[in-house]
Each structure stands twice: as C-alpha cells, then as structure tokens.
Write a protein that binds this DNA or RNA. Sequence first.
DNA 1: TATATTAATTGGTATAGACATCTATATTGA
DNA 2: TCAATATAGATGTCTATACCAATTAATATA
Lengths: 241, 241
Amino acid sequence: MIDKRSPIPIYHQLEESIKQLIESGQLNPGDALPSEREYSDKFGISRMTVRQAIINLVNDRYLYRVKGKGTFVMEQKFEQNLHGLTSFTEDMKARGMEPSSKLINFEIIPANAKLASLLQIPEYGPVYEIQRIRLAEDIPMAFERTYISANLVQGLTSEIVKNSLYSYIEETLSMKIAGGRQVIEAAIANAEEVKLLEIPEHIPVLIMERSSRLEDNRIFEVVKSTYRADRYKFMIDLTRP
Amino acid sequence: MIDKRSPIPIYHQLEESIKQLIESGQLNPGDALPSEREYSDKFGISRMTVRQAIINLVNDRYLYRVKGKGTFVMEQKFEQNLHGLTSFTEDMKARGMEPSSKLINFEIIPANAKLASLLQIPEYGPVYEIQRIRLAEDIPMAFERTYISANLVQGLTSEIVKNSLYSYIEETLSMKIAGGRQVIEAAIANAEEVKLLEIPEHIPVLIMERSSRLEDNRIFEVVKSTYRADRYKFMIDLTRP
DNA sequence: TATATTAATTGGTATAGACATCTATATTGA
DNA sequence: TCAATATAGATGTCTATACCAATTAATATA
C-alpha cells in the first residue's frame, strides 16, 4: 500500500490511499481513522509524515480532527460551494468554532399560500418542514426552517438531512443545484425565537431567507433562518468585475 | 515579535505577524519573504515551525512558494466573487426607485485610532467625513457615514460627492477600484438614527460596514451605513461555479 | 566569449523524539 | 453509590537533523 522506494512522496501515497478509501465508501462520513501512531507503526513511517498526509486531507475537507479523540471522515465536501460565505457550517469552521445542529422537527405539511408561491407548487402540496437549531460551541446561534417540495425531492429522511441534503439531491437524485438568492433583514426576536435561541426578549436578530434552485430553475428549497445579532454577523466579500 | 513563553503557539504568532505585514501593506503582492532558514535563525525557532506558519498562509492564499526560489506574497488573496460592489444609487435604480441624497456634513477630521487602523493611515491623519441621508422616492432609507483618506483621494469636494465619488476616483484620479469587504449586522436604532431616519424608537436597523480597496490593496474608503430594517433588505445572488 | 560545471540558497520530504493538551475510561475513596 | 482522581491514548506543538530537488549565480573551461 505504501512504497518507500517510489519517487512519489510517502505522505502523498498515504493521502491518496485514504482519499480512495473515502471515495470508495470503505470509510464513511463520521468514521474514525486509525490514529497517527497506528499508521506510523503499520507502515514503518514517521508520525510527522502521517500528519502531513492527514493535514492535507483536512485542508481539502476530507477529514476533520478532534484533539484527544481522533481523526474522522468529513460529511460531503462540496456542500460549501453553494452557501459560500454565508454557510453556517463553513462560516463557523472558518472562525475556529465547532458547529453542530439540533433537529427539532421533521415532517410533511401542506403548503400554505405563501410557501406554495415561493416553491412554485400548488397550494396544499406536500412540503417537508425541517426545523433545526444551529449551534456553535454548543451555543445556539440560529433557528433554521427549511421547506422542501416533497414531490421534487423524494425519499427524504431525517438521516439524510443530518448528513448532507445537497449531496443526496445531487448524487442520489442526480439533480444539479444551480444557485440561489438570499435576502437579509433585521427584526426583533419573537417569542418562539427567544425561547429556542435562549436569548433575552426584544433583542435584534438577523433574518435570512434563501431560495435555492436547480439547473432548470425549479425552486427546490426555501430556508428561513433567524440569527442572534449579538453573536452573529454576515460577512460578504465583494470583488469588482 | 515572537514570544516563546506565550501560550499561543509560535507558528500561530508568526502566521499572524506575517499576515499583518501583508494587510498593512508593508509586504506587497509579489514581494519575497525572508527564507525559512532566515526566520528560523532570526527568532531562534525550528525551521519546521516556520514552515507550519507558512503552510497555513499558503493554504489561506496569502502566500505562494516556488521551490528553489522562495516564498512570495500572493497577488490576489480572494478568488472571483459572486456579487459586485454596488452603490446605494445603483441598487435603488435596479429596484425601479428614484434615489436621492441629502448631504448633512462634509469636512476633514483627524482620524481616531479605530478609523486610522481601518484606513491603514497614521492616527490623526486627515480624513474626509461625509454624512448623508439616502432616500428612495423621498423616503429616508439609510444614514451613511463615509470616511476617506484625504491624502489618498485628493481634491474632494461636496460637489464631487453629490455626483459620483467612484467615477471621480477612477476617471479623474485614474485609480482602479478593486473590491471590498462588507459586514452586515442588526441592531436597535440609536437616538441620532431615529431622528435622521424619521423612524420610531426601538425599531431594528441593519448596520452595514464596508471597506473598499484599490487595485494595489490600499483601503481608500470606509463606510458605515444604517438602514431602516422595515423598509430595506439586502439581497444577495448566489450562483454556483 | 560562450559554454559547462560547481557552489550556494531555496523550498520539499522524512525521521525520531519530547512534552502539552484534551478526552474517555477505569479506579479509588468517602 | 457517587464523585474525585489517575491513566491511557488521541491530537497538538516543537525541536534538531538529514538529505533531496530546483533555481540562481559564480566559477572554471573550451
């Protein structure tokens, strides 16, 4: 598996080998990798060389590491593309914080008039409603409600949502996600948000509404998120054409 | 510059130190950094530790390395972006509304510490302060404070500001505007904003802070705007690459 | 002079080991 | 039984050293 006499650097051989295990499904998201010392012993190479392979895979978002616990396989990596700078998970990671989610609700509901209009479906049509609390370092940062047309995105389960919705849509359903539109506004937290976000009453929040579309311009998702404004800011990079 | 007794890792201290040199303009795009061995000798730290700092900066696209030649400051830190740098005027016109402005203040003031840091100029350096109310269809929408380094953008008058600041910079002064960075947050309107925007007390507002830079990465403008959140939303288009 | 060689300098790869910090588990003591 | 304490094992930081590979400049040679 590792050829020390090869002109290809050892760390690169190991890197490709691990990447291959992930892409072939022998290592699944969340799985723990052997420890650095195990790799070191197994292949008779230095631990620093193992680390170099792993560091590269962490930078490429194939893996993530938790001090004292181990190294694990990342959820699908291209999720970051769509959200860009305003993706909660990526944003938090970029700030050196550990993001997590708490699923509050997952069910199919009939679309009301507004939702039907946003999703471009008939009124009372079936829609997945997914409600989540987004946390950073276990502190509630945002309350997120996602609505997905059930006729368009079929076979959705809470497990899929927990892993990666976008990879399910793109890989399993073979539909191509093209982009989206986001609107940001400010408001005062309502009672439900105060409770779920564990914040004082009457403090300002940021509301983000996003609708995401497929390549054929059908809307497959509408997300409404409420961010606590005392802890969260939206950052946007602008480059002139 | 490097404190070995600090609990902050040495590589991280060096990393921040180099990043600071770049962002403050003491290191310019294309400039060569001292070699790894020079850093190692200068600070009395291991070359591997220097490399860890540099590797991180290469991953963050601050630097790039060429084997046998050296390490250099990257030309453009960020890749192409999704949205352009638009002014209030352009934004309102795009929404089919008639924009106008009311100039409240136009003077040269000495930069305080925060402003000096944001504009990358010495403290007490001369800065244009331009305060404006932005209106759409004669309704106040935002209170905007613009700060411009007077040594960088010379000969500014209130007449120029009334017309188009950006075209003055690009056409008359022949300086190229490259982009900027925006931060959006929510707050409760303060007394001044309540008065100027003619809004009720305690309503939420959107705060936008933008810093704009020239092609040579000098910051020429810092803008802080307060938008009434009941009338104004930020819209962002995301398109997948 | 023009070309080839060599030396010096740069980043790239790899090793071995030390100690720190964090996590989970097992053990001990009240 | 419950809580504090020890420990084993994981990643994180750092050192010191060695040699490889690419580039550049100085030097020797035809």
